[in-house]
């Protein structure tokens, strides 16, 4: 891979990781959704760049799916849900933002050390791409774990999916079918969770998952 192509791909993957960290940092709902849209945009740029340098036109489809669904439709839909349901617009965290950021740095370090170690001898771009992708996946999980609010858990889940697509795009020869199915699984998850949110709203008058726990009679 020529120097500039490699550097650009590297830059975009690293950008995705950076945006993941930005998402963890947010404590307001709307800015979180905006950052998520940015996340999806960076992903689509990264995938499109991969499509260009690999000469794999089907990856453009993936980039388009990421751009249209994840960067535009889903954030705006979630925004509507938040507005319509009158959801509390603050993201309630379990531990402090600073601690979460430190944990995120640790996870990134772990995934980079691990991936560079495991994939010795592989294509250098694929190695770093996989390391970034694993970091993004782990940060998405971290976000799901450290947020009490259902909407931010959905956002965490979808940023996790973005990490997977980044990994899939970096690996040469990944068939289109898989990407479409991954994208659709995100769609399905979104629909299901969206419906779920409405049901929660109807039932419990709140989308804070801790209210469900109280309803179930659990002590925390």
């Amino acid at each position: 891979m020529p120097g500039i192509a490699f550097d650009t791909a590297h830059l975009l993957s690293g950008g995705l990781l950076l945006v993941s960290f930005m998402m963890i940092y947010q404590d307001r709902m709307f800015s979180l959704l905006r950052i998520f849209a940015l996340h999806a945009v960076v992903l689509s740029l990264s995938v499109a760049w991969q499509a260009y340098i690999q000469g794999a036109p089907h990856l453009y489809v993936t980039a388009a799916i990421a751009l249209i669904f994840k960067a535009i439709i889903i954030p705006s839909a979630l925004r509507r849900i938040v507005v319509q349901l009158g959801i509390h617009r603050e993201v309630e965290t379990v531990v402090g933002i600073g601690v979460t950021m430190l944990a995120g740095i640790g996870l990134s370090a772990l995934s980079i050390v691990l991936m560079l170690d495991v994939t010795q001898g592989a294509d250098p771009y694929a190695r770093e791409d996989l390391a970034f992708a694993l970091s993004v996946v782990l940060l998405g999980l971290l976000m799901m774990v450290t947020r009490r609010n259902a909407v931010s858990q959905i956002v965490g889940f979808m940023s996790l999916e973005n990490g997977m697509i980044l990994a899939a795009a970096g690996a040469k020869g990944m068939p289109l079918v898989v990407e479409i199915s991954v994208a659709f699984s995100v769609m399905v998850a979104f629909i299901v969770i969206g419906v779920f949110l409405f049901r929660i709203r109807e039932r419990f008058d709140s989308v804070d998952v801790s209210v469900m726990d109280q309803h179930r009679g659990d002590q925390r």
Partner: peptide, 13 residues
């Protein structure tokens, strides 16, 4: 709680 289940999965990973 749901979040703790997620934490379990996350920690085992």
């Amino acid at each position: 709680t749901i979040r703790r289940y997620l934490t379990l999965v996350f920690m085992s990973l």
